[in-house]
Amino acid sequence: MKARLVLFGIGALGFAAVWFAGARKLDPMGSYHGAYGEILNAVSVPERHSTNVVSAVNFDYRGLDTLGEEFILYISVVAVAAILRKQKDEEEEDEDEAPTQLREAPDSDAVRLFGVGLVPVTVIFGLYMISHGSVSPGGGFQGGVVLATVPLVVYLCAGAKTYLRIAPPALAKGGEGLGAAGYALIGCLGVLAGKKFLENVVPLGTPGEAWSAGTITLLNLTVGVAVGTGFVELISSFVEELLRKAEK
């Protein structure tokens, strides 16, 4: 243990020295002289009808990165679900004796009222963020996570049975696959139309409107579906044994 600390200490000092030597040559904070950003600022509205340049970069100019990132999240969820499910299979025998901790609806009316008030606002906010990704900050990823918090709030305020009713595991799993495959398939549309992978193939619309920017908005939608359902599946697989009891 002590040897490890000494080892790490030396390493950390060296690492800090290397980092400092490199960072010392950085330009002052806030200065930018790449041509990249200037070009994008100039072309993203005329070319892609997207007033949010960040979305244009994420879903069009560097859309392939986002495809990869979506699948990082997707495969992590798949892996966690697979691992937790596998353990479940082997522990089925001792599970029956587990103390019941089934989450019933809370006694407090205040919590329930809070939930009733929060859920519609969250749903609308999430949908707004997903659909307006090409117009204003936010997009499929952020909106998807916001939407995924809805079942969680329901779980906390109305119990596991209601949770299962609004977010059945089969739906979450299907939506996750659909969203993830959808991104790649929209990419393939470009090839089918005789263009390049991930090239825009749908009408661009009027800049500044929600249904504009062509594939950028469609891709935002698929990401929203994949991320939202992915997080729900993640939550479900963590509380799976409780959910199964609620089903019985």
């Binding site: 699948f71 299907g174 696959g177 495959a181 790649a184 990419g187 090839v191």
Partner: peptide, 18 residues
């Protein structure tokens, strides 16, 4: 060029979903 990435991803999402 795009198929070595796109094809396994689509197949994987399809298999995981269904």
């Amino acid at each position: 060029a795009p198929w070595p990435v796109a094809l396994p991803l689509v197949a994987a999402a399809f298999l995981a979903g269904l």
